[in-house]
Amino acid sequence: MKPLNILLLTCSLTVTLPVYADEAKVAVAANFTGPMEKIAQAFEQETGHKLVIAYGTVGKFYAQIKNGAPFEVLVSSDDETPIRLEKDGLAIAGNRFTYAIGKLMLWSTRPGLVDDRGEVLKRGDFKYLAIANPKTAVYGAAAVRAMEKLGVYAALEPKLVQGENITQTYQFTATGNAELGFVALSQIYKDGRYAEGSRWVVPPELYPALRQDAVLLTRGKGNAAAEALLVYLKSDAAKAVIRSYGYEF
């Protein structure tokens, strides 16, 4: 084929692409990985839009967005980062909403290690307790607060190992390298069933509410896929998925 023909063919292909489908780049907090994958699949099927999703810690996303990362939506693990982005003019004010409230769990793969009142934290008969980095991950900060309120933080501090984010914290615990860990309920709860092992639902009054907000970023203005995703996150279908992973609203 002659170069000119290839060029013409390329042009015609570009022109005939459907115009109704848009693509959105979405930054998603690591703890929301499971439900987001399900939601994205249903969303793409229903709307014909396409999502390109990056999972990670919100602190990293904040730095990237500030430096021009091409994200159109942030599905955050907190409510502070979206507010900060609004103040910076990087998110569109008035769009922010809480799509889920996370729950903190103490979990071990060993049956019988974690009791349903969290007494194991007072006994301290383990070598390592995994938490997410409290400086950078809200679940880590919540775990520290809960331990402080229980009055066990000072005693347990030498046993703490930190995951870079909540996914890595889960990894440390799931591989048994840490006997137990503070993870997100969404990581060990699916369709009404808990993962193997033993667990304790940390009472919500022990830590500040884990409000997870989503926000449309300035780059996403006018992007049909990005705007549709934010609407979809409030739909009953999305809420059913979110609830099935143990989040509340």
Binding site: A63, Q162, E164, F172
Partner: peptide, 19 residues
């Protein structure tokens, strides 16, 4: 596991600061 004085090396410390 990011333990100060045990496994928190300089590269991880920088990463933490950035995060």
């Amino acid at each position: 596991g990011n333990i100060p004085g045990e496994t928190r090396v300089a590269s991880v410390q920088i990463y933490d600061h950035v995060e």
